[in-house]
Amino acid sequence: MMTARASATLAFVAGEASGDLLAGHLLRALHDRAPGLSSVGIGGPRMQAAGFDAWWPSERLAVNGYADVLARLPELLLMRRRLRGRLLAEPPAVFVGVDAPDFNLQLERRLRQAGIPVAHLVSPSIWAWRRERIELIRQAVDHMLCIFPFEPALYADTGVKATYIGHPLAEVIPLEPDREAACRALALPADGRCLAVLPGSRRAEVKHLIAPFLAAAALLVQRGLMSRVVVPIAHAGLRPMVLQAAAAHPDLPLHLIDGQSHTVLAACHLALVASGTATLECALFKRPMVIGYRMSALSYRMMSGRGYLPDVGLPNILAGKRLVPELLQHDCTPLALADAASDLLEHPAQLQHLQDRFTDMHLSLRRDTAALASQAILDMIPA
């Protein structure tokens, strides 16, 4: 087994910045345990820093809503077809799909049919929406690596092995973030309140959210509740959209930062954040937040017609109750965002309650995630 592991090639597909972050931690743990491993597929800069050979960059999978998927469907299908052909011609020891279920599950089914063991990191949100995916998961996945404690029970009667590994971000993010150190790292003044604006890492997300988020930020500054606004830009391709929206607020004390979203969250006093993984990151940094989300009218109509929305606040899901405000689609207006943020900032007892709940959440998600996940994947490599 150790000989096979030492020379094995693993294939990964990680979509978007969050998948790249998760897979980057996993790859480092895999190389610690089996230094001779190689890894190929679709991934981002954090994975490449861990020695990953990216055939395509992970940002190519960044889509938002049905309308965006439909517009890019030919490109995505061609990419998946080419990737599938390459992996079938040179089979990896294990294929690891990291999130991106719309892209990965169909690919995983074909690879598993060809005898390639398949692990999937981050269970699709069948507990919140699209429970019909469970049959596809049964056909596509050998081992589901779950990052939330309630998820393995959902697979109890499916035949899919499911293991709770904790959330890797709960290990990376400190229990007590250092705001002063973060401000120094960003060259921000230590006095006054800092607002973080996180409109997402996908172009469609930023397109729909940056304008209302910055307009809400301007209202909070006018009300004297914030003294500076910081936007971590996920990648260079998003900067023109942010600059265009910022031009409408020339007096806004705005700081644009390339990446470093974790440092920005550590420095801030409150965040306006797109629904998704960033909401959990914000909770792990113990920062109050207002969650906003918009998508194209077509995508919203299609999803609303099926009775679900694709993204809801992870802190609220984990708590089983509404801890932080969620403002979706037509409700996601600058005034509503600013009013919700003002309400949080003006009630210290509520802020302390959030911090306490977020600390409990952090502790519940903290495991030796990378070690558990890497060992599970290594155990799948054929002897």
Rank of each mutant, 00 (worst) to 15 (best):
I291W: 08
I381A: 05
S364H: 09
A267R: 08
L214M: 10
S342I: 09
P240R: 08
T279G: 07
P35C: 14
L318A: 11
N104P: 00
F148E: 05
S299K: 06
T3A: 05
E151T: 06
P348N: 09
G237W: 02
L354W: 04
K321S: 15
I137P: 04
P189Q: 07
W55I: 13
D251V: 00
G305P: 07
L345A: 09
T369H: 02
F150E: 12
L77P: 03
Y66V: 13
A62K: 09
I210T: 01
R287C: 14
L270F: 10
T369F: 01
V264K: 13
I233E: 04
A271H: 02
A274F: 10
S125C: 06
M295W: 07
R223F: 05
D356Q: 15
T333L: 06
R306S: 03
L26I: 07
L265M: 11
V206T: 02
A54H: 00
G200S: 08
A4W: 00
L70R: 05
I210G: 01
S374T: 02
S275P: 12
R367W: 04
C282H: 11
C146A: 04
C282A: 14
I381W: 13
A283E: 03
Q329M: 05
A67T: 07
P310A: 12
R5K: 12
R82S: 11
V290A: 12
L243R: 10
P325S: 13
W55C: 12
D360A: 15
S201W: 05
Q375D: 08
A29F: 05
A211N: 01
A274H: 00
S38I: 12
P74V: 14
T369E: 05
H269N: 14
Q113S: 08
H262K: 01
G19Q: 02
L298T: 12
T263Y: 05
D178K: 12
P288D: 11
A156I: 06
I317N: 03
L121V: 12
K161C: 12
G166D: 05
L252P: 05
S18T: 00
G320M: 06
L175S: 15
L198M: 11
R287G: 13
M79I: 13
P232D: 03
G159I: 02
P325N: 14
